[in-house]
Nucleic acid binder design. Structure first.
Lengths: 230, 230
DNA sequence: CTCGCGACTGACACGACCGTCAGTCGCACG
DNA sequence: CGTGCGACTGACGGTCGTGTCAGTCGCGAG
């Protein structure tokens, strides 16, 4: 299927574009996309090289022309995706010139949500299969993850210093926040919500980290535990 | 599977303790524990039956006397653990006779944390390997997970009705909450925090879902966005 | 003592998947 | 033309883990 047969137009001299049927980059991309789709459907471990090449419509040997092995494609997929996520995040500037912090926070949430919704397959793969493959790979992933945690922790610490972030261990808060976000992303992608629910979800996530949701019961006097606001 | 071979009560005399070396139940337990430890160390997919039997100190064939296959042990481990978690959760009673809701919430958080800290290996396994094995297994796990989500969603909805839970889609709030908790459990177990940090962590999680952490900047007039409390 | 039985063993046959490599194909260049 | 080259192919040998099953062992009953 999808056999890229036949000759295309060959540009006389251009060596770069001489091979028309598909350039190396295009073939690579083709395999990458096939792999992504199969991974998303069957999961990493259920997937064999044969599955991938069948989906891509190339021969087994061709796969090995472009990638080391199954781990190789997988790693590249995760790399690309995680860098798209990284790209979507912008560091919070405390002394806001024009942009109030809440808006920056909301923008970040919205951006991440958007990337995930545009790359549902990858989002699912990242949360379902990316962990527990190989200790080397795990470590690499943990590094990326730690960077995000680190970044958020720093921001929280700074926020605490100027009083716009409540008390608590920043690192713990970072875990809680990221965990909440991860879970929501996964569910949204899995349940197949439409991409335009991003705005409403952004608001809801923002409200959550902003105010939580548990309220003191109205009739009970609120003196019992003195922890509150600040 | 689950060969409920005769034996059982039938013994005229004292058959139960006749086989001294190990009873059937004990051997089963022995294999389960070996499997748990190996899974936690190498991950489910890296683990072979040989690894498990080596750790348990029995022969390959013996394993198959007690379990269907690797999936079988794994499923049983997850079953036991998830039911311990379920057991730890108690439904929130709104019209508190004596126990205020916040206390019930805290108790639940604390109980779950305690189970996880007492079963680090299982906690790690659950979050690292339990997903993406097999579509049948995935569905079973999703069912358990959905029950928890369902329970929490209901409680949140009830809470909203009497004004102790803020606005928002209960299901989304449930995902955010559970995600936050999951992530923290995983990190706590992985990083190897001591079990006596449970109290402090409980408080921090409670504060998070209770108040969030983002505060309006002090100097800025708080009227800019009218969403607030409610 | 010997028989029977249940628990246990581990060598073996099997199948799945992997990575390779000798060979095909089409094209541009001399 | 024919030659060289780069892209591609797919059959093949090799590895690894699985599940089985014929056989051993210990012990209590007859």
């Amino acid at each position: 299927m999808a056999a890229r047969r036949s000759s295309k137009k060959k540009s006389a001299k251009q060596s770069a574009a001489r091979k028309q049927p598909v350039t190396k980059a295009a073939r690579r991309q083709q395999i990458l996309e096939a792999a992504r789709d199969v991974f998303a459907r069957k999961g990493y471990h259920q997937t064999t090289i044969d599955d991938i090449v069948a989906k891509a419509g190339v021969a087994r040997g061709t796969f090995y022309l472009y990638f080391e092995d199954k781990r190789g494609v997988f790693a590249e997929l995760i790399d690309r995706f995680s860098s798209r996520i990284s790209m979507a995040i912008t560091k919070i500037i405390i002394d806001a010139p024009q942009r109030p912090v809440p808006e920056q926070v909301r923008d970040n949430i919205h951006a991440i949500l958007t990337v995930s919704l545009n790359e549902r397959a990858m989002t699912k793969i990242l949360f379902t299969d990316a962990t527990g493959l190989d200790s080397a790979f795990d470590r690499k992933l943990a590094t990326f993850y730690d960077e995000v945690v680190q970044l958020l922790s720093e921001s929280l610490r700074e926020g605490q210093a100027i009083g716009i972030v409540g008390d608590g261990e920043p690192r713990v808060m970072a875990y809680l926040t990221i965990g909440a976000l991860k879970e929501l992303l996964y569910q949204v992608v899995t349940l197949g919500l439409s991409a335009d629910s991003a705005d409403a979800l952004t608001q809801q996530i923002y409200d959550f980290i902003s105010n939580g949701y548990l309220r003191e019961p109205p009739q009970v006097r609120r003196g019992s535990s003195r922890r509150q606001g600040r």
